[in-house]
Computed example of a mutant assay.
Amino acid sequence: MDQDAVRALYDEQLRREARPDGPGATVERVGDVVRQTGPAHAWNGVLWSRLEAHTADRAIREQLEHYTALGLGFEWKHYDHDGPADLAARLAAAGLTAEEPETLLVAETGGVGTAARPPEGVELHPVTDPAGVELVARVHAEAFGTDASDLRRRMLDRLAAHPGTTAAVVALAGGRPVSSARLELTPGTAFAGLWGGGTVPGWRGRGVYRALVAHRARIAAEQGYRYLQVDATGMSRPILERLGFVRLATTTPYVHTPGR
């Protein structure tokens, strides 16, 4: 894989030319910044920027003013190849808070093993209705220890408006949801996104996550997507690298909450 070429394609298709990721959201380019604005439960933030030292502070201030005027929190999704070199420090100085960095990993769909199956006693079920969404939200809350209310609403929105663009799956063991994940398909691009893969404590290390990756890779291949991309945590990165994923960048969410 030519990692520089794939990184440039990723930046073009999923950042600079990004499309709204759900109903009620809009993506616009304002100067040298591309941002998404939507309802409070949607993802709001900066997807891409092309800034220089003399333009960065003004651009950051303009995004703060934009989202603050709407009463929205937002995320500036910073990649380590974005300019200027001190952009992260400028975001922090403006009052945005850095969360845990993640690694942008990419693999060619045909190069990811798709034969992995879930361990004995575990069945994979597609998520096609609100009851399935509720199972995903339960896994998310237990696996990551975070509130899943916004995720639940976003999934319900997309299920109603664009049912063919998200392929979510939940793993059940004895009827209990123990793992879940999403595959987001972006028409007109080369990339299918792996999101939200999480397994509850007690079921980790048994091959469930690997089976969910294989399941989604099969779907992406059937739909004609060349690449799989994922923002990997430190927990999932080693598994994905063993499956053939390679690093394109480190990405850090810089977040701003209204009133802070």
Results as ranks from 00 to 15, higher is better:
D129L: 12
D129M: 07
E134L: 15
L135W: 14
L135G: 10
A137C: 09
R138Y: 10
A141E: 05
A141N: 02
A141Y: 01
E142K: 07
E142T: 08
S149W: 02
S149G: 13
D150R: 02
L151M: 14
D157I: 10
D157E: 10
L159I: 02
L159D: 06
L159H: 05
A160F: 07
A161V: 09
A161M: 09
A161C: 06
P163Y: 03
T165N: 13
T166W: 11
T166P: 01
A171W: 00
A171H: 00
A173P: 00
G174V: 01
G175M: 04
G175F: 02
V178N: 11
S179L: 03
S180K: 07
L183D: 04
T186M: 12
P187Y: 02
P187G: 09
P187N: 06
G188E: 14
T189M: 08
T189D: 14
T189V: 11
A190T: 10
A190H: 09
A190F: 05
A192K: 14
G193A: 14
G193T: 12
G193E: 10
L194F: 04
W195F: 11
W195V: 05
G196H: 06
G197S: 13
G198I: 06
T199N: 09
T199V: 01
P201L: 04
G202H: 08
W203Q: 07
G207H: 07
Y209I: 01
R210S: 08
R210F: 12
A211H: 00
L212P: 11
L212W: 01
A214G: 07
H215D: 11
H215W: 08
R216F: 06
R216M: 10
R216C: 08
I219R: 14
A221P: 00
A221R: 15
Q223G: 00
Q223V: 07
G224C: 12
G224T: 12
Y225M: 04
Y225E: 04
R226H: 12
Y227I: 05
Y227F: 04
L228S: 10
L228W: 06
Q229H: 15
D231H: 14
A232R: 06
M235F: 10
M235W: 05
S236T: 14
R237L: 04
R237V: 00
R237H: 09
R237E: 12
P238T: 14
L240Q: 04
R242P: 00
L243T: 05
L243M: 15
V246I: 11
R247C: 15
R247D: 14
A249C: 09
A249P: 00
T250I: 15
